[in-house]
């Protein structure tokens, strides 16, 4: 009896997680190589994605089967973020080519729009203390590359 109950509970959890992922509103800001790839992959998994870039040409980097929304606008302007409904998103990924713009967008999304989860890409590791100060979740791509390079070099030796 108890075994059956446990099984049912775990099944419930699984269904919940699936529902949460598929209902998530994701906004990717900056159609960089990284942004376009993340957005394309999420879209192919059936997640609702909106991608914002100030240059319409940038959207050519998206995969052919991308079925999300594209939004042309300057994300440095808060009106663009509101127009693209970033304030209603569950997950925001800030991956423009400028660290400071990514940081500003992340702060606006998490502290003013109260978005659940905000992720930010940074190139410059020296901005880390600021991210920690303001509880910004960041991914330091230069640091990640260094780790991978070191792994590869270690493998050679």
């Amino acid at each position: 009896m108890s075994f059956r109950l446990k099984k049912d509970v775990s099944k419930c959890k699984m269904v919940n997680i699936m529902a949460r992922i598929s209902n998530k509103q994701v906004v990717v800001i900056g159609c960089s190589r990284l942004g376009a790839t993340i957005a394309s992959r999420m879209s192919s998994e059936g997640i609702a994605v909106t991608i914002i870039d100030k240059d319409e040409d940038a959207f050519r980097k998206l995969s052919d089967d991308f079925s999300g929304y594209t939004f042309v606008g300057d994300a440095e302007n808060i009106q663009t973020l509101i127009d693209a409904r970033v304030n209603q998103a569950d997950l925001v990924i800030a991956v423009t080519d400028k660290d400071n713009v990514n940081l500003m967008i992340s702060e606006i999304c998490s502290r003013i729009f109260k978005v659940d989860k905000v992720l930010c890409r940074i190139y410059d590791s020296s901005k880390e203390p600021l991210c920690q100060q303001y509880n910004i979740d960041f991914i330091d791509t230069s640091k990640l590359s260094v780790v991978e390079f070191e792994k590869a070099i270690g493998g050679c030796i």
Partner: peptide
């Protein structure tokens, strides 16, 4: 850039 000014000030 406004973003640069915000980050510099913070």
């Amino acid at each position: 850039s406004d973003a640069d000014n915000l980050i510099a000030c913070q």
